[in-house]
Each structure stands twice: as C-alpha cells, then as structure tokens.
Design a protein around this nucleic acid. Structure first.
Length: 891
RNA sequence: GGGCGGUUAGCUCAGCUGGUUAGAGCGCCUCCGUCACAUGGAGGAGGCCGUAGGUUCGAGUCCUAUACCGCCCACCA
C-alpha cells in the first residue's frame, strides 16, 4: 500500500476494489442474530427490462444510507435485493427482439420456446442491472437475492391466489376491462393513463322507426356505433318523454334500437340523449346490464372492425372512423361537429390508446382487502414519510375498484386454474388435478393467462422471507422497517403490498414508507427515453465517482419532493470529496514516517489537548447529536448538509489550520497529542459521512492507524456516540472568540486593502466576560490573521489614534494601519454599522417595551433579548464615539 | 370536477414542533499561485420568504382568502 493518499481524489482507483472487498468479506450479509434488533429494508426490485436510471440511483442511495447507518448502530441489518420479472414490459421487449432476429411473432414459436427466450433475457439483463446496483455501492445482501419468478416467489403467488380464491376474494368474470390492442392484454385501471387529446364530437341523427325525426346524439367515437344497442335519455327529461319506448334506426346499418330511460344521461350535457354501446364504454356497460341489452362487439382485440361492421370489417378503428363519418355525412345523418378535448386512456407501457373490451378475466375483490389496509395506516402502524402521502393512499384505497389481475401474456405467473377438457369444470389448484370431480375425466387445460406483474410484487415483503413457509427469517425480519420508493408507485405497489400483507400476515409490511420524488433534468422536465434527456448514472459515476453522485442526490432535498439533476451539483459534491481527500492526506502526512510506519501518537489518556482540540471535539459532538436525530427522522438531506459543513467549514477551514503551529513548531509530546486529536476527529467525521459516501470514507479509513479491536472495515464500525453533557465550555469559548477576532482582522485587512503579506498589529478590547478567551486567542490570532503583535487594552481611551476597527459580541478589535489606512472605507463602514446597530436597538427596545412580550414570552427569551440590547447599545456607543475621530482624518 | 404540492438571494433548493441579525450550493465582485487541497484559500455584494387579510408578545413557519406553476385522481356522451 502506498504511504499516503494520492494527490488527487480519483474514485475509479478504489470504488470497485472496495465493493469487491466488502462483498467478498460477507460484510453485506445479514445472519439472524437474536441478540440484536433487526433492521430490514426490501429493495424495490428493478425491472429486468432496463438499466439503472437516476430514479433508481436516488432510491438506492437512500436505502443504502439508511442501511449503513443502522448497521453502524448495531442493528442486524438486512437489505434484501432482487429483481422483478415485469411481465408486460419484458414480454414486449422479448417479442420485439424475437421479431428483429427471426421475423417471427410469439405465436409462431409457441409458449415454450418463447419462455425460453424470456428466461435468457432475464439472465442477461437481470445480471446487468445487478452490477449497476453494485456500482452505486449498495450494501445489500446478495446472498439473499430474490427474483419475483423464482421458485419461492412463484409458490407464494400460487398459494396466495388459491387462498384468495377459496375465500371468494378472487373471482372470474365477464366484464368490460381496459384492453391494450398493441400489448394484446387486459390492463388494470391504474395501468391506464388519462390524457386529454384534441378530438371532436360528432352529432348524428338516428331517425325514428316511425319515419319521424328521431333523436340526435353526440359521440367522440363514431366507429363504436355499429355496436350500439340503445339510446338512453334521462326519465326526467321533458324533451324526450314521449320518445321513451320507441325505436330509432341505426343510420346506414339499419338495425332498430330502443330509446330507454335511465338515470345515467345528464340532460344538461350534449343533446341529453346518449348512444349506448355496452361493449365499448364502462357506463354504457352498466346501462346495458340494467336494461338487459345485448353486447355486440364492433372492435376486436387488434383494434380492427368486426364482422358486424359490414363493409368496414377488418379496417383499423381510426381508418374506419374516417370512412364511416364521411359516409354518414354523405347520407345526411351528420348534424354537426364540434372540436373538443377528449379524455383518452393510454396504456402505461406502450402509450397506445386503450379500448374497453368485454372479456373473461380474473379479478380481486378489493373492498374487504382494503379495509384492514386503511386501518393500519390510519392507526399510524405503517407511516408515510412525509405524512401527506397518506392522503393519496387513503383517497385511492377508500374508493377502490376490483382489480383485474389476468393478463393475456406468457411471461409471468400462470394462473393456477385448470379446466376439464370434457365438461369445462374449473378447478383452482397448485398443480394439475388428476381427476375432474364433476365428470371424472383426466384431461385438463391450464388457464392461458398470466398474472399482473404487481400481483407477485405485492407479496414481496413476505415472499422474499420465505412465506408460505414459516421460516426463521420471516419471524425475525418481518415486518420490515422501511420501504423506500417514489410517489409514482404508491398505488401500483405500496398499497398492494399493504393490503396483501394485512391479508396474508395479518400485520403491516413495514413501519415506514419513505417516499422520494422524481429526479428531473436541469430544466425540470421528467427524464424520459422519448425526450432523450435522461442522464445515465453510470456515466456520472465514471466521471465523478459513485460517492459524488450519491451525495448530490440527497443534498438539500426534502423527502417527497422532486429534484433537478445538474452537473454543477455533482461537481460540487465531487469537490467536497476532493476536499475531504486532501484534508485526510494532510492528516496522514503528519502521521507517517518516510517508510510508511506510524509516528508515535498519544492516546486518549496521555494526550494533552489544546483548546482547539477540545473545541473540535465539542463541535463534532454537537454534530453527532444533530445528524443522528436527522437520520432517525429520515431527514437525510439535512444530515448531509450538516456533515458537509462540519467537514469543510469547521474541520478544514479552522481546525486543521489551528493545529498547524503546534504540528510544525511543537515539541514531540505536543505533536503526539495533535496527531491523536487529528486522527480521532477525522475518524469520527469519516464515520458520520460513511452512510453517504461509503467509498471515499472507507478508502481513507484504510490509511489511518487501526484502533485495538477495530472492525475489518469502516462500514462495520460503530456509529459515533453523542454525549449530552457540554464539555470544555471555556475552551470552546476561547476558540469561538479567536475565530471571531481573526475574522474581524481579516475583514479589516480586506477593507483597508492591505496586502495579505503585511504583518499587522492587533489591539483587543475585551469585556470582562471575554477577557480570558481573548487572551487565550493570542497565538491563533498571530498565525491565522498574520499579526505580529497583539496588545490588550482595558478601555477605549487606550485605542491607538489611527486604527480601523471591527467588533464581535464582547470584543472590539482595532488595527492601527498608519499608512495603509483607508479612512473613507472605515468611515463608511462605521456609518453602516451605526445604522445597523440603531436598527437592532430600536427593534429590541420595541420588543421589550411591549408589555405583552415581557409578560407572555418565556423568561429565557426575554432575558436573552435584554442582554442583546445591552450588547448592542454598548457597541453603538463605541461606534458613535469613533465616527468623529475617523471623520477628522478624512479632512 | 375533486385532491395534493410549489411560489424564500441571479439560478437550484434547505429551513423540524412559530422565538438570535432567514441559510446552503452554484453564479457574481475584490484579493491570493503559499509548504493538505486552484476540484483551492481570504473577504464581500445580493432576499419586505407570491399577494391580501387574520391569530399571536412574536409568523417564512399557524389560519382564511386569492393569483400563478406543477402533479395525482375522476365513467362525462
């Protein structure tokens, strides 16, 4: 190993190496340990279709940060990874590939051969995404990795299906469902996306059978007319009262259809009369049920016109629409057209327009399942973070419709229902039945359909832990601790896991649901393939490192809110890593001999700590408290901002600088103490940062001297402990004073435009309470502000005549600058200072003269205000005294 | 038509249960190649916290309206 870190932070040099070392050592593996409390996260299984995108990267980062944090806190931490077979999405891809390679469709090669290809796809792409997850540094337990179609998960699906069926919660029905003609499958309601499209209303006249005027109705889908079975009007609608019960003629088709009265039509809308097409519209379907109407079908599963459409048979629905409207118009039935925005349903996978279609499908009866699922969230057993998402959840759950779970696909869990080939009897069972209980024959055919992919992912919280077997894992790790996912899949997945878990396990699947937003592009647009604005996390890792990407994704983001990706942000994160890298390099440089061995170092017992050491310890301790509390509240963005500030603005900007004089000029004993202090601080910082930036922290850690009994890796070390009692109050005050004075002198220097190399003379006037601190600050003032001499004075009479000044609470700082003095700048500064202080004084005086405030506000706050007032008044007085002096110099 | 979120510095965003002079990153201005780091250091400018009311001793934070922007849900011919 090298002696020290390389000069530049270069994550490629170590990220992959460290991941491999972690994984091979078994550090990610969670073995049941009943002496510890479990902490469990189940990874939302990425689809095997794609590759890692920014949304995954964010999701992974959140989970890994939580996992690493809890692991360091001593929990038995399981982060269980896996992938999803993604039934419909994968099938589409495999069909495309097949078409491209052989020109054949899936029907041509048959189910068996097709599934073989699908599994091959799974091997290839499932493997790819897993390696991408590794690139992120995710510390998940690969030994427990699962796949939604592996044997265990498949058993769970079957078992669950059968249980629900036996309880009457799964049923088969002939109903109107959403049908995607391109995917060739049924879809559930939430798989249909609603978009408004520019379209038209066409008003057509349906002439009366009696030769009368008939009735005019509007439609946005004229091609469905072939399947019309009635015209409905509201019974209260006076206009049509006399026409109810009469018949009209379907124009050009010639079929007679009745005019019926139903509550459904709204007299205010359109013409008040609605054409009823039970096979093409959910409302019409229900009207049809109520009135016992036939359900002829005009559009087939490929969105082509059926035989009932006469000469239009075989035409595409839109092609037909055009021709049909033209024909009706020519025949004089088109009354008028209107431009209109039409709400349209699209398939969430392929974005083609969905056509409602009547068919035999399987459904889950939702009401009974939803109730306990609503209850557990309402009781707070299962809590959304941030809380507002429970409204989204309730809204959906409380108004839930039955779930269509059958898909006309091959890739997925095949429905465990068997039909007797003789009598058609249906048997739901795990395996093919031997004998038909009804007719005694032995030939069965399994249901052709597969299950909705979300049916299996709904079981993820327990199927991955062994259910239906009563495993130790299930007893120990269930219910899981946190589910981390985006708000876009609350309905698809989160809600379904909750109701499935309540049904199967009788208990909520997770304590918390941490919801994150979308990662958008720099302009705030959703990243999408069609826009081509997606940013590949792997490319970012390649350029900036996984740590920088991870850090950037959490920085300054509140849970549930969308964020924008920008290279500026990731650069900032990388720069931060570089900063830490170099600060660590400085520490290590001072720890090691030429030959790489460690120089002697003090211990906790022997170290003689200076004020700055104690100050840094104290600052770190406070940060430990804050960061821990942020982590526990899932405020990872805030925790990260604090560690950033701690490392950069405290450790690098001040502490390291403050140690240098002792490090360079101190005797050996002093140096030994400084080394101890630097290492101790750095180690704590690395621990605090590790959940966010695992690689760089682990790499730096490996260069530091190991404590006795240390874990093999930083990732296995324990989280720093917060000590509630305030330590080192005097030393902390001294360093804070020193920092204040140093800043004041630098400020004066800058205002005066004095050269940085120019040695200055500082004159300090400290109030009694600050005197000791100010005296203790002398060395630091000299080294940090390039001051050659510090004088302490007791009253402002002793202020050297020509000086610029600045002040901090309790301390005034004067710098005589005989020739470099910029009196004009000083004068202006004094004036603005005067204005500021006057403002403060009057603000606080106003507050204090307010009887309400004095009477009602807590005494602590009132006193604090009084003290501030004294301080400000004092400063103001000093400033006022100084103004004429400087003014005189101006002339 | 319901519901939710946003509106804070030039840009992107934090700001927990109301309480020091409202913060960060980037950008901007001035100065600095020095021995951890120019992927850097020092100093600085910049905000009536969308608008109007209200509650309170005290409001970016709570309430009520309102205006824009965005998202989700919904069977409107």
């Amino acid at each position: 190993m090298e002696n020290n870190l390389a000069k530049n932070y270069s994550p490629k040099e170590f990220e992959d190496r460290l991941y491999k070392a972690w994984e091979e050592s078994g550090a990610f593996h969670a073995e049941i340990d009943k002496t510890k409390k479990p902490f469990t996260i189940l990874m939302p299984p990425p689809n095997i279709t794609g590759q890692l995108h920014m949304g995954h990267a964010l999701d992974q980062t959140l989970q890994d940060a939580l996992t690493r944090y809890k692991r360091m806190q001593g929990f038995c931490t399981l982060w269980l990874p896996g992938t999803d077979h993604a039934s419909i999405a994968t099938e589409v891809k495999v069909v495309d590939k097949l078409k491209k390679e052989t020109g054949l469709g899936k029907e041509d090669i048959g189910r068996e051969a097709f599934l073989e290809r699908a599994w091959a796809w799974k091997e290839e792409f499932g493997g790819r995404i897993k390696n991408q997850v590794r690139k992120m540094g995710s510390s998940c337990d690969w030994e427990r990795e699962r796949f939604t179609m592996d044997e265990g998960c498949s058993n769970a699906v079957k078992k669950h299906f059968i249980n629900l069926y036996n309880k009457g919660l799964i049923y088969r029905g002939n109903r109107l469902i959403n049908w995607c003609p391109v995917c060739g499958s049924a879809l559930s309601d939430i798989e249909v996306e609603h978009v408004d499209k520019q379209g038209k209303y066409w008003y057509f006249r349906y002439p009366g059978v009696d030769g009368g005027e008939g009735i005019t109705v509007a439609t946005s889908r004229p091609e469905t007319m072939f399947a019309d079975t009635a015209i409905a009007v509201n019974p209260s609608d006076e206009r049509y009262k006399d026409m109810v019960g009469k018949k009209v003629i379907l124009p050009l088709v010639g079929r007679e259809i009745p005019i019926i009265a139903d509550e459904y039509p709204d007299p205010e809308k359109g013409t008040g009369a609605v054409k009823i097409t039970p096979s093409a519209d959910p409302n019409d379907f229900e009207v049809g049920q109520r009135h016992n109407l036939d359900k002829p079908v005009a559009i087939d599963e490929h969105a082509k016109m059926t035989a009932i459409c006469g000469k239009y048979q075989g035409m595409d629905r839109y092609e037909c629409r055009k021709a049909w409207v033209a024909d009706l118009d020519a025949a004089g039935y088109l009354v008028k057209t209107e431009d209109m925005t039409i709400p349209t349903g699209e398939c969430y996978r392929c974005h083609n327009v969905v056509e409602p279609r009547i068919s035999d499908q399987w459904f889950v009866k939702m009401k009974p399942l939803a109730e306990p699922a609503i209850e557990t969230v309402r009781k707070g057993e299962c809590a959304f973070v941030p809380e507002r998402f429970d409204k989204t959840y309730f809204h959906w759950m409380e108004d839930i419709k039955d779930w269509c779970i059958s898909r006309q696909l091959w890739w997925g869990h095949r429905i465990p229902a068997y039909y007797c080939e003789e009598c058609g009897e249906m048997i739901v069972a795990e395996d093919t039945p031997a004998v038909c209980p009804k007719c005694g024959c032995t030939h069965f055919k399994q249901d052709e359909d597969a299950l909705d992919t979300w049916f299996s992912s709904a079981l993820w919280p327990f199927s991955t832990l062994g259910w239906p077997k009563d495993t130790e894992e299930l007893k120990y790790f269930y219910p899981t601790s946190v589910l981390v996912t985006g708000y876009d899949i609350i309905f698809f997945w989160v809600a379904r896991m909750v109701f499935s878990s309540m049904e199967v396990m009788g208990e909520k699947p997770f304590d918390h649901v941490l919801i994150h937003g979308l990662v958008r592009d720099a302009q705030g647009r959703k990243m999408s393939k069609s826009l081509g604005n997606g940013i590949d996390p792997l490319e970012m890792i390649d350029v900036y490192g996984a740590d920088a990407l991870r850090f950037m994704l959490l920085f300054g983001n509140a849970p549930g809110n969308d964020m924008r990706f920008s290279t500026e942000k990731i650069e900032a994160a990388r720069n931060f890593a570089n900063k830490l890298w170099n600060a660590s390099r400085f520490v290590i440089m001072n720890l090691k001999e030429e030959d790489g061995s460690f120089k002697p170092m003090a211990t906790a017992e022997t170290a003689k700590l200076a004020a700055e050491d104690k100050w840094m310890f104290s600052v770190i301790n406070d940060a430990i408290g804050d960061i821990t509390s942020n982590m526990d509240k899932f405020e990872l963005g805030l925790a990260e901002a604090k560690i950033y500030e701690l490392i950069w603005n405290y450790f690098c900007d001040w502490y390291i600088e403050l140690t240098k004089s002792r490090l360079y000029n101190g005797d050996e004993e002093t140096k030994m103490s400084v080394r101890y202090s630097l290492v101790t601080c750095l180690k704590n910082l690395l621990k605090l940062l590790h959940p966010f930036m695992p690689f760089i922290t682990e790499e730096i850690w490996s260069f530091l001297p190991a404590d006795e009994g240390a874990a093999k890796f930083l990732m296995l070390e324990s989280w720093p402990e917060y000590k509630a009692e305030k330590l080192f109050a005097d030393d902390v005050a001294a360093i804070e004073t020193a920092i204040g004075i140093i800043k004041a002198i630098r400020n004066i220097r800058s205002k005066a435009e004095a050269a940085p190399s120019k040695k200055l003379h500082a004159v300090i006037l400290a109030d009694a309470g600050y005197k000791a601190s100010a005296l203790a600050a002398e060395d630091h003032i000299k080294t940090q502000a390039n001051v050659s001499e510090v004088s302490y004075i007791d009253s402002k009479d002793q202020v050297p005549g020509e000086a610029m000044s600045d002040a901090m609470p309790g301390v005034e700082i004067y710098v005589p600058l005989d020739d470099l003095m910029d009196y004009k700048a000083e004068y202006e500064r004094l004036l603005s200072e005067k204005k500021r202080l006057e403002g403060e004084v009057s603000r606080i005086e106003g507050k204090l003269s307010n009887q309400g405030f004095v009477a009602k506000a807590p005494e602590k706050i009132v006193n604090a205000e009084r003290e501030k007032l004294v301080g400000y008044k004092d400063q103001l007085e000093k400033t006022l005294a100084r103004i004429p002096v400087v003014e005189a110099k101006l002339k």
